[in-house]
C-alpha cells in the first residue's frame, strides 16, 4: 500500500487536486478549427480536381461558413489567454518545437485565405453582389486566374490545421491520455468528417449529397478504427497510459464517451447515412447534427479527461 499526499497544503488554483487550466474555450476552438479544416480541404480538393461545377456545395457554398468558424475559434482562444494584452507576442517569433506557435501562424495564414475564398463565391448567396470599386473588381479577376494555386495552398494549410488540433495535445507527455501520436490523425479525420457532414447541409444536388454521405461514412469507419488503435496502444503501454485508457473503460468518462461520441456521434449518423443511400427518407439534417455534436463532444471529453490523467510518483 502506497499513499502519497501533499501535506503543505498546496492548492494552486486550476492545478490541484488535478489540472483544470483549459476550459470550454479550447475544445470549442479545436472543434471549430477541425471543422473549418474539413470544409476547406474538400473545397480545395474538388477545385484541384476540376470538379467545381459538379460539386458546388463543397467548393462554392459551404466555405462561406469558414471565416465565421475561424473568427469565433480565434476569439475563444483569445478568451482562454490569461495574459491577454500580450497576445501579440505569439507573432514576434516562430518556435518550431511548439505546436501552439506554428498553429498560431497557420491560423494567421488560413483565416484571410478563407475570407478570400468566401468572397470569391459570395455571388452564390447574393447573386446581385457588386464590389462597387474597380480596384476590388480587378483584384477579384486577378485572384480568379490563380484559383487552382490558391486551392493548393489551402489544401496544405487545411491538413496542417486539422492535424495540428490533435498534435497540440499529443505533444504533452505530462498528460498520458494526450501523449499519443494517433491523436493527430484522429482529430484530422474527425474534422474531415464534420466538414463532409456540413457540406451535406449546403449541397443542393442529390448526387453531391450521396457522394458526401459516402465520404462521411468512410471517415467514420476510419475514426472507429483509429479509436480502437488508440485504446489498443494505451492498454499495451505503461501503467500511466493504462490508467488513462481506464478513464474511458469503466472510469468517469465511460458513459459520455461511448454514448455521445461513439454511439450518437458516429454509429447512429453512419447508420442513418447508409439508410439514406438506400433511399430511405430521412431528413439529412439529423445525421449532420449528430456528427457535429459527436465531434464537439469528442474534443470536450479528450481535453477534460486529459487534464485528469497524469504521472504518479
Amino acid at each position: 500500500m502506497r499513499e502519497e499526499i501533499i501535506t503543505s497544503g498546496r492548492l494552486n488554483p486550476h492545478i490541484d487536486p488535478h489540472l483544470e487550466i483549459w476550459h470550454w474555450q479550447i475544445p470549442l476552438y479545436l472543434f471549430l478549427g477541425g471543422l473549418a479544416a474539413g470544409i476547406l480541404f474538400f473545397a480545395a480538393l474538388y477545385t484541384i480536381m476540376g470538379k467545381e461545377e459538379k460539386y458546388p456545395g463543397a467548393v462554392r457554398r459551404a466555405p462561406i461558413l469558414v471565416p465565421f468558424l475561424l473568427v469565433i475559434g480565434l476569439f475563444a482562444l483569445f478568451l482562454d489567454l490569461k495574459h491577454k494584452l500580450f497576445f501579440w507576442q505569439l507573432y514576434t517569433t516562430i518556435k518550431f518545437m511548439s505546436p501552439m506557435s506554428w498553429g498560431a501562424w497557420t491560423l494567421m495564414a488560413i483565416t484571410p485565405l478563407s475570407m478570400i475564398w468566401a468572397a470569391l463565391h459570395i455571388r452564390d448567396f447574393f447573386p446581385k453582389w457588386d464590389w462597387k470599386y474597380d480596384i476590388l473588381k480587378d483584384i477579384e479577376t486577378e485572384i480568379l486566374k490563380y484559383k487552382v494555386h490558391l486551392a493548393w495552398v489551402m489544401i496544405v494549410l487545411s491538413v496542417i490545421l486539422g492535424i495540428y488540433t490533435g498534435i497540440l495535445l499529443s505533444a504533452f507527455n505530462a498528460r498520458p491520455l494526450w501523449n499519443t501520436s494517433i491523436l493527430g490523425p484522429l482529430f484530422l479525420t474527425s474534422g474531415l468528417s464534420a466538414g463532409a457532414a456540413t457540406i451535406l447541409l449546403f449541397s443542393k444536388s442529390a448526387k453531391e449529397r450521396r457522394l458526401f454521405a459516402k465520404i462521411d461514412i468512410l471517415l467514420i469507419v476510419i475514426e472507429l478504427f483509429l479509436i480502437t488503435h488508440l485504446f489498443m496502444g494505451f492498454l499495451a503501454s505503461t501503467s500511466v497510459q493504462i490508467d488513462a485508457a481506464n478513464l474511458f473503460l469503466g472510469g468517469p468518462y465511460t458513459a459520455p464517451f461511448w454514448i455521445f461520441v461513439v454511439v450518437l456521434g458516429m454509429l447512429i449518423p453512419a447508420g442513418l447515412e447508409i439508410m439514406e443511400l438506400r433511399h430511405v427518407k430521412i431528413p439529412h439534417v439529423i445525421p449532420v447534427v449528430l456528427v457535429l455534436f459527436g465531434s464537439l463532444m469528442f474534443r470536450f471529453i479528450i481535453v477534460y479527461a486529459g487534464q485528469m490523467s497524469r504521472w504518479l510518483y
Binding site: 489540472l19 495574459h83 505569439l90 501552439m100 504533452f172 507527455n173
Partner: peptide, 13 residues
C-alpha cells in the same frame, strides 16, 4: 512575453 496560454502548465509532469 507570456500570453498565459497554459501550454507550459499542461506540459509539466
Amino acid at each position: 512575453k507570456c500570453i498565459g496560454c497554459g501550454a507550459c502548465i499542461s506540459s509539466c509532469p
